[in-house]
């Protein structure tokens, strides 16, 4: 099994709860196999920073540790239309350029406050490319977070076998 397949399988099995070293490959490509999206290692790293800014590590794991950026990529690659995929890819490049200009440096290098403020600006901007990309990313990151093994077993517990129904439970 090659490394990419191994990572993908782990991701599938673990539902995202897996830590990858920060710098682990030299291929320049994304760490998961994508059928439709062309994503570079830099793109992936930026998306990781973005999802970490959206959902930061606190006393519980955040976007990076839960691999939400890979979940976003996987879902956009498999579950979105080609049009969405194009908009996502374009929007990601646009975000890279725009954030660098706005922050006067790399997004990854900025402090948390400036990053959050920057993302806040997207909603108010009239750049449709950026907005579309951000809305897909945020929606999928939220989905990935709420449906991650970590959250479903520790924070918002999912019951596979409730064994009960009470229609008059106290609110």
């Amino acid at each position: 099994m090659n490394r990419r397949a191994a990572v993908r399988n782990l991701l599938y099995i673990a539902g995202g709860a897996l830590v990858l070293p920060a710098c682990f490959r030299k291929s320049g490509k994304a760490s998961i196999e994508l059928a439709n999206l062309a994503i570079s290692e830099d793109d992936e790293r930026l998306l990781a920073e973005l999802t970490e800014t959206l959902i930061p590590a606190t006393d519980t794991p955040g976007g990076k540790e839960l691999l939400l950026h890979l979940f976003v990529l996987k879902m956009v690659d498999d579950c979105h239309s080609p049009k969405d995929q194009q908009q996502f890819a374009k929007g990601l490049s646009a975000f890279s350029a725009w954030s660098e200009k706005e922050l006067d440096g790399e997004f990854a290098a900025a402090n948390t406050d400036s990053r959050v403020k920057l993302l806040d600006k997207i909603g108010k901007s009239d750049n449709e490319e950026l907005k579309k990309f951000f809305s897909i990313t945020k929606r999928r990151a939220i989905q990935g977070y709420m449906n991650s093994r970590y959250v479903m077993t520790n924070l918002v517990k999912y019951e596979l076998v409730p064994g009960r129904y009470n229609g008059f439970a106290p609110a």
């Binding site: 599938y12 539902g15 996987k74 879902m75 498999d78 579950c79 449906n147 093994r149 479903m152 999912y158």
Partner: peptide, 17 residues
């Protein structure tokens, strides 16, 4: 039958294809 939502690659959504 005994899979948790996070064990599905696409969290139970059907892929676009």
């Amino acid at each position: 039958t005994n899979m948790y939502p996070y064990e599905f690659e696409h969290r139970m959504e059907m892929p676009y294809a």
